[in-house]
């Protein structure tokens, strides 16, 4: 299964997201050397208290096996999304492990105000 497929299955059937689509991303000149996939969908409930209802979340999936990433790669992800929709305040990063575990992290654009846990 490709990265996109694995992440899609995990989001839909394990985390109960709906309406998840995989987006084709044009390879730009500064492409990242690592395989990744871009998806968007609706989570079952608001991911953060301050979100609007029904906010469409963007998900970038990377293989954990490709161990490295960099600030410029993250910037590229935001730009890839910018070509499809207005630049979001945050993106969800999905790390796919070779044992089928997928862990999700929020990547916010900028330094967030620290909140209570």
């Amino acid at each position: 299964m490709s990265i996109a497929q694995q992440t899609l299955t995990n989001l839909v059937h394990y985390n109960l997201w709906t309406d998840v689509t995989v987006h084709d991303v044009q390879e730009s000149a500064e492409s990242t050397p690592y395989r990744f996939a871009l998806l968007s969908g609706l989570p079952p409930s608001k991911l953060d208290q301050s979100d609007k209802e029904g906010l469409r979340e963007w998900v970038i999936a990377r293989l954990l096996e490709d161990r490295h990433s960099s600030m410029s790669e993250i910037e590229q992800f935001f730009r890839a999304i910018e070509s499809l929709a207005p630049r979001p305040k945050r993106v969800t990063l999905a790390l796919v492990n070779d044992d089928a575990t997928v862990t999700y992290y929020f990547v916010h654009d900028g330094a967030i105000k620290p909140r209570q846990n």
């Binding site: 991911l47 600030m71 993250i74 910037e75 999700y104 992290y105 929020f106 916010h108 967030i112």
Partner: peptide, 30 residues
């Protein structure tokens, strides 16, 4: 928070790097 130089806006005159941040936290699901 990851803090790094933004590659696009390097101010060459006074050599001061301009910075850009990304904040990372666990999403709480999955």
């Amino acid at each position: 928070v990851l803090v790094g130089e933004s590659s696009t806006q390097r101010n060459k005159q006074n050599q001061k790097p301009s910075l850009h941040c990304f904040s990372i936290e666990w999403a709480g699901f999955g």
